[in-house]
Write a protein that binds this DNA or RNA. Structure first.
Lengths: 209, 209
DNA sequence: AGCCGACAGTAACAGTGTTATCAATGCTCT
DNA sequence: AGAGCATTGATAACACTGTTACTGTCGGCT
């Protein structure tokens, strides 16, 4: 055919790794295709033939971030106390976010121009599964109210996500031990969804007039 | 002195309003100084003499967004049921965010290149005050555990922020009635922080073995 | 050997934020 | 009144971005 391909899988990996490193310690805003190409000793053409455009590159980073995130969450092995597992999943959630703030940001925050594809959103959505499973096991063990495990899981997910997000963006009040507040919140939410005597459903109490 | 000033307060307002409108319906990423200046029939110089640079302009938008947000929250008048007030504050929180997603994003999410000044962060931090007050009243009425009202408030704040943030970024699972889950979560968190018989402190329960 | 087409680097294009230049302006001083 | 001049603001230049067109290079096939 023609000359040897150099825009191959190896180059693709080098580009992704370099991009991830840049995003990791300077944020997604500091990612420039020209600099990236120069750093990896190739041309901008490589990015376009391998990823289509910048959004495609970020898409791959997004995918990678989700993969790492999911790995961290599935490392939390189910125990015989599902309610405690929920708390431990929450702690793993924060561990990941604090360790990789910018990668976390690509998936759950910083969103600049980039809009993830529905496919990526689906992948990201799947990271809630370990939590849903833990809640379902908790329900089976009588630790949580009956009803949709997804609802209870999303509730815990939201609490975790919210505090982590406030912490990373600097919007959390200073002078508080955020780690401690975080754990207390997880316990409070879990406690709020605990099955209580004479309470079976999961519907909210009627609004006050 | 010299020629008549046209880069005055009136122009400043027109620029802010136009910028807010652009951000409101096309996001902060679509804000260009050149377009903004052209739209308002002036030159880019105006932005620099009035705001310093683009960050200064966004800083003003940030301030405006916080002002609107605080107005929405203080519109929730304290009732004789502080725990219900906490829930109502949470609902007002979401109402604002859903009504003004991009302005909300400037303060609590989208963060592109822009880093808010400590002063702005302080102002944003003050928006939690109505919630802290409600929690404190609830503690006085025996509805919440004793301990730091800030901690309990931040806990509720985080839950609200998390779910709203997931919703706006499209990371919430589809097929669920988010509004309903949101309210249920608020009730669950409030319930989790409720004072219970024989429980005075606010420390987390000991981890199960 | 010669050729043709896939390939990849260079350079051009349209846009951005920012800054330097410079003409227009109206007060102040002679 | 008229000249001078500091202040003001629009224009144009600069350095950067993502993206695309171009063009020279290369290697297998005829």
């Amino acid at each position: 055919m023609a000359r040897l391909k150099t825009h191959d899988e190896a180059l693709r990996l080098r580009l992704i790794n370099r991009a991830a490193a840049t995003v990791f310690d300077r944020g997604a805003g500091a990612l420039s295709l020209r600099r990236l190409a120069a750093d990896v000793k190739t041309s901008t053409t490589a990015v376009y033939s391998l990823f289509g455009n910048k959004a495609g590159l970020i898409d791959s980073l997004y995918q990678e971030a989700v993969r790492l995130f999911l790995a961290r969450l599935t490392a939390v092995r189910p125990s015989d106390d599902p309610a405690a597992d929920v708390v431990r999943l929450g702690i793993a959630y924060r561990d990941y976010a604090v360790a990789n703030p910018h990668l976390y940001g690509i998936v759950f925050a910083d969103r600049l121009d980039y809009e993830p594809t529905p496919e990526r959103l689906n992948e990201a959505g799947s990271t809630i599964q370990p939590l849903v499973d833990a809640v379902a096991r908790g329900q089976a063990a009588g630790q949580f109210k009956d009803g949709s495990a997804e609802v209870i899981a999303l509730s815990c997910w939201g609490a975790a996500h919210g505090l982590v997000s406030l912490e990373l963006s600097g919007n959390a009040p200073t002078g508080l031990d955020i780690g401690a507040v975080y754990e207390e919140t997880l316990h409070a939410v879990v406690s709020g969804w605990r099955a209580r005597a004479g309470d079976g459903g999961h519907s909210a109490p009627p609004p006050r007039p």
